[in-house]
Nucleic acid binder design. Structure first.
Lengths: 119, 119
DNA sequence: TCCATAATTCCATAATTATGGAATTATTGA
DNA sequence: TCAATAATTCCATAATTATGGAATTATGGA
């Protein structure tokens, strides 16, 4: 990933509504969601949502596909992973063991959080 | 990670100089670098660098420790990993296999890139 | 063709952010 | 105490960005 695309992606995500939209789409999976459903879920006016979707789209973080009267937006997982790779690239000069807490994104908490069960 | 800290981190990284500083510190390891060395390496005027270090620091992405006349700044690896976890949280509703290219940041390209050797 | 629905563009206003020279504030060694 | 170096704060200017109602542009069903 080039510095300019990383910057575009970060700027796109650095806004409350867009971050929420993106995370929603990451969660939704490759099929994605229609603009209407996104706006409903997040309570965002259509014009505002359209503006933010365009920003995310320009940054390469989401893509839309027209399907009949609807546009389905979905997360671009490759871009997401590319951004993460860019941020962590060459962490500790490739000696991650020397990095204390580590250069690795922890045990990958993909699933929703679960309350810790007391012993 | 809370939405507000994620937003702060993303906003901090969404700026060319700060992104360069952060990646430089990620690469530098836990010891970090002095302000002077950073400015030298990236060719940034002191006042500008100071401003950006403050932003990164407020966002929790770096920390400075005074040591004699110098301030050593280092990346906060925990914050970095927290941000990544926040972005990928509950990816594909916890069924990453259904996600095509995947919810996982690829084979972890920590080390510097190497040219692929032709077969 | 006409109507209803989906989504985008237009636009003015408001708010936030980056820049870097000059002045200022630490910190240390002599 | 004084001088030298490290880093930050101050400040005015310039530039970018978010908001959402109203108008506009697809798209498909009747």
């Amino acid at each position: 990933m080039e510095v300019q695309s990383a910057l575009a992606a970060l700027a796109a995500l650095a806004q409350e509504t867009r971050l929420a939209v993106f995370r929603h789409l990451v969660e939704a999976g490759p099929e994605g969601m229609t603009v209407g459903r996104i706006g409903e879920a997040l309570q965002v006016p259509a014009a505002t949502l359209s503006f933010h979707l365009k920003e995310l789209s320009h940054a390469g973080l989401v893509t839309g596909r027209q399907e009949s009267r609807f546009i389905w937006y979905s997360a671009n997982y490759e871009a997401m992973n590319g951004l993460i790779a860019y941020l962590t690239e060459n962490c500790c000069r490739g000696q991650p063991d020397a990095c204390g807490v580590g250069c690795t994104p922890a045990p990958k908490s993909t699933a929703a959080k679960r309350k810790k069960v007391p012993a």
